[in-house]
């Protein structure tokens, strides 16, 4: 039972982590020193709360951990949560950090002659096959997705496909690769995510943490 009793908070590696950590600290969770040591190979970290453990995993894995209840709480972009689209995850709080957008882009030279109303089938490179398929299906277009894990902007240039769906923050990477954003699918921010069974079986404890994160987000 002991293993089930500690609350596990999953945090995503990378860009979003730097923006999220001040908030986690404001909510009163301070990880052990190894967390900030770039050379540490540790995966799981103790905190100043005996019953709270932090795990640091890849951003998509945050969704997997919290969906399966391996993590009770997590911070993840709503891009990840939308891609999972499972009733096992609640996302009660928008933390208002890590702003960017999920968008469709295509080569600049295509834009003038492209008429989206004529589309029936598209081939799209993306990290988000579920979101992409759903987005286009909703307007009667089948999207055949080529799943890539990075360097999406290369795909059109090398002839893998002509369009991509990716996160866009400033638009600079798109521009450098001759791509133009033609459609916005969603605005993205970091969210607090909660496993459903965890909220149902430990309502007071998890509810209290949601409240603390809410205060921390508003104090920003």
């Amino acid at each position: 039972m002991a293993a089930n009793d500690a609350l596990v908070l999953a945090l995503p590696k990378g860009r979003i982590l730097d923006e999220v950590m001040p908030l986690v600290r404001r909510a009163g969770i301070v990880p052990e020193a190894a967390f900030d040591d770039p050379d540490a190979r540790q995966l799981s970290f103790r905190t100043n709360h005996r019953d709270v453990t932090i795990v640091r995993v890849r951003s998509f894995d945050v969704g997997t951990f919290v969906a399966f209840g391996a993590a009770h709480l997590a911070i993840a972009g709503n891009d990840v949560l939308m891609e999972f689209a499972t009733p096992e995850i609640y996302s009660p709080l928008d933390l208002e950090v890590g702003h960017c957008r999920l968008a469709v882009a295509e080569p600049a030279e295509m834009v003038a002659n492209d008429d989206p109303t004529r589309w029936s089938h598209l081939r799209i490179a993306t990290k988000y096959p579920q979101i992409t398929r759903r987005h286009f299906a909703a307007r009667g277009v089948q999207a055949e997705c080529i799943k890539l894990n990075g360097a999406l902007e290369l795909a059109p240039r090398l002839g893998l496909c002509r369009r991509i769906v990716d996160l866009v923050q400033t638009g600079r990477t798109l521009k450098e690769n001759g791509l133009v954003e033609i459609e916005r699918i969603a605005d993205i921010t970091a969210r607090l995510a909660v496993n459903r069974a965890a909220l149902k079986t430990r309502p007071d404890e998890i509810g209290a943490w949601i409240e603390r994160f809410r205060e921390a987000a508003h104090a920003a």
């Binding site: 039972m1 209840g69 009733p87 069974a197 149902k200 079986t201």
Partner: peptide
């Protein structure tokens, strides 16, 4: 509201702490 396919009135889910899903 999610996961109730045909229910209309008072409904319920049964959980056991530490077990995934209901």
């Amino acid at each position: 509201n999610r996961g109730f396919e045909y229910h209309t009135g008072v409904s319920f889910s049964i959980f056991s702490r530490g077990v995934r899903g209901e």
